[in-house]
Design a protein around this nucleic acid. Sequence first.
DNA 1: TAGATTGTTAATCGATTAACAATC
DNA 2: TAGATTGTTAATCGATTAACAATC
Lengths: 216, 216
Amino acid sequence: MVEEKEISKAVVGRLPRYYRYLGELTDAGVERISSGELSEKMHVTASQIRQDLNNFGGFGQQGYGYNVKYLRTEIGKILGLNQSHNMIIIGAGNLGQALAKYASFEKNGFLLKGLFDVDPKLDGMMVRGIPIQMMDKLEEYLQENEIEIAALTIPKSKALEVCDMLVECGIKAIWNFAHTDLHLPEDVIVESVHLSDSLMKLSYNITSYKEEHGES
Amino acid sequence: MVEEKEISKAVVGRLPRYYRYLGELTDAGVERISSGELSEKMHVTASQIRQDLNNFGGFGQQGYGYNVKYLRTEIGKILGLNQSHNMIIIGAGNLGQALAKYASFEKNGFLLKGLFDVDPKLDGMMVRGIPIQMMDKLEEYLQENEIEIAALTIPKSKALEVCDMLVECGIKAIWNFAHTDLHLPEDVIVESVHLSDSLMKLSYNITSYKEEHGES
DNA sequence: TAGATTGTTAATCGATTAACAATC
DNA sequence: TAGATTGTTAATCGATTAACAATC
């Protein structure tokens, strides 16, 4: 239990991107990189990279730069990717199944343990070796299994109700794809992916670009 | 072609959320709302709401607040939701099909016109009344149809190559789900949804919460 | 008119960038 | 050692919040 200083959301938001680029560099066999080189690749300032990293300690070496593999591992630890996280997916429609099949999640320590849905047609169907179970089994399942993360790929009309149950059953974190905000107790972590918000941002940028450059 | 002042990304990022809450209020039959009431609902400051809105003009009335329906419509216009946007999806796997089936996109003016994949097993399969076509038809298709947005739900190994072609064919905007950054000419709008980045942020927050509160 | 609440200016806060001494 | 590049402090910039005059 070390005394931690609060890290800003902006910094946390950039860590996965660093991790991704360092992964690509590792794959490309690059051993060392300076903040200057990385800044060019990533289109950010070198200063920002150094500031961001120094929130967590000195990972580089003066006159040398950063060791790619080492830095990647360290950022992975900061992100908690060195530990495994048991996960279930609630809502086994296309989106739920798409998430279930993303192999790269398993690679990063996110272990899919269960899939749940209300649709009886899906009952027992196997996805990636895991059977889809009916929602009425969920509560019991959570009592018997140590699950940390629940991905919520259900309609917003069901989301709040399911959430209440998850919280009661002691779930630690929710990865929310429902089109609604979840205001939960502060000991439950929520990360939301609002796809329609994202598409609207895209639309805004198209529209404002047109206005600036004159549409025909 | 009005002289526009540049709107910050932070502000644009909040607009869809305002739009969503105003939609819920409309559905609930609420006619007017003050920045104070809305701020409580949304867990942001009233000051921020007023500042954000006043980037685009005065939508409220002193002593009264904002008319919910009117404000929603205006934000919709700002986001470009009053116009329709022709869209195709490239990659008709689970994620592509999930996007195709999101009815709410159509409601906001995003019209799905085509679905493309490389997998011959999917050839001709209908999703939401639209047949999946093979990728080798894409170039010709784009020449014959006015498509604004391409959603990219393909592996990152294919993304760059497909992107080059899209840009050459004059696509205006890319909604990118591939696990890679796209650095395209500045007249092509890119909005990326990096699902694994999102999951890593979740993982970071779990991990740092544990550290703060002592894990067992 | 009096009360309420906006639109907007000013103050504060935080994040990004620049600069440079420390050091490998 | 000399050169390179970090870690870190200081300067700048931008975004958020507070305050209040304008006005419905």
